[in-house]
């Protein structure tokens, strides 16, 4: 008799962790894609940096 049997709780936790991980990874990809789109636009301008006195 094993005490290592996986409980339904562990499955639920793993599902939650994998889900959050995938969402975070997708978010990173989305922000990267958004950044590329915004900086490659024709009207994109770098913010003016004031020169130090």
């Amino acid at each position: 008799m094993s005490l290592r049997a996986e409980h339904e709780l562990h499955q639920r936790r793993r599902g939650r962790n994998v889900g959050v991980g995938l969402m975070l990874a997708s978010f990173v990809v989305l922000i990267l894609a958004l950044t590329v789109v915004k900086v490659t636009r024709d009207n994109f301008q770098l913010p003016e940096i004031e020169e130090a006195q």
Binding site: M1, A5, H7, L9, R12, R13, R16, G19
Partner: peptide, 16 residues
């Protein structure tokens, strides 16, 4: 012992 082991879902641990 693992006599208390149960497949019943535990409350308070929500799934995604």
């Amino acid at each position: 012992s693992d006599a208390s082991y149960s497949e019943r879902p535990i409350e308070g641990e929500a799934s995604l």
